[in-house]
Design a protein around this nucleic acid. Structure first.
Length: 221
DNA sequence: AAGAATCCCAACCGCTTCGAA
DNA sequence: CTTCGAAGCGGTTGGGATTCT
């Protein structure tokens, strides 16, 4: 293993290496990353190739500064999900988990820290939701968060929602009773799964749940 | 001008999860 | 059921760029 790792190059990618990888993917498509070195002679391990493509070379990756809208969205998602960077990035078009993570650590964490000092701490109460939600989200695969075509509505997605529905319900109830937020403060019309104590409600899509939750826990309200 | 300090982000590392055999 | 390689994830690091003294 040690001998193998030493045959791979580390550090920043050169323009030539980028071109080799891009050409390979154009020809063979994405996946089988460990084949890249064998096929092209590129001195990079599969893991490195995958990361380089996903975070930099892919045409889906948006470059440049984050907009105010992106910042707000990330802050809200982070408030809800915590450091689930891939989930957050999945909701920010064109941004990778690495970008979001770096942006959060270098800019947004300070920004949010400053904002929280100036305001009440409603955001903190969302930690309970975040923790519980995270626990349940961790049981789901990435595909569970991708809106599936209507023909597939009864498939993975709704199954996933059913699995975690009860916990979500508890989380929101828990949130309502915690810290500063009183039951009467809650906008029941906009509060997902809060209008009834019945647990066998028609489960909405997970993305719908996230959207509702984002509005709900947004401490900037 | 130059050395030190800080910022920023690409890339790496280690661990977990997935899925095919 | 088990094994094992591939893929995915989040935390961390390295080093170039920028700012400060």
């Amino acid at each position: 293993m040690e001998g193998r790792s030493s045959e791979y190059k580390k550090g920043l990618w050169t323009v030539e290496e980028d071109k080799i990888l891009t050409d390979y993917i154009r020809l063979h498509g994405i996946g089988k990353w460990n084949r890249v070195a064998k096929v092209t002679g590129l001195k990079r391990c599969g893991k490195s190739c995958r990361l380089r493509w996903i975070n930099y070379l892919s045409p889906n990756v948006k470059r440049g500064n984050f907009s105010q809208e992106e910042d707000d969205l990330i802050i809200r998602l982070h408030n809800l999900l915590g450091n689930r960077w891939s989930l957050i990035a999945g909701r920010v078009p064109g941004r990778t988990d690495n970008q979001v993570k770096n942006h959060w650590n270098t800019h947004l964490s300070k920004k949010v820290g400053a904002r929280r000092q100036g305001k009440g701490k409603v955001g903190d109460s969302s930690q309970a939701l975040s923790k519980s939600l995270r626990k349940n989200l961790s049981t789901l695969s990435k595909s569970d968060f991708t809106p599936s075509p209507s023909s597939n509505e009864e498939g993975t997605q709704s199954q996933a929602v059913n699995e975690i529905g009860f916990e979500h319900h508890q989380s929101i109830v828990g949130l309502s009773g915690s810290q500063e937020m009183m039951r009467s403060d809650i906008d029941y019309d906009n509060c997902f799964w809060f209008s009834s104590d019945e647990l066998d409600l028609q489960p909405p899509s997970l993305m719908e749940f996230l959207d509702k939750s984002l509005d709900f826990v947004w401490y900037g309200l």
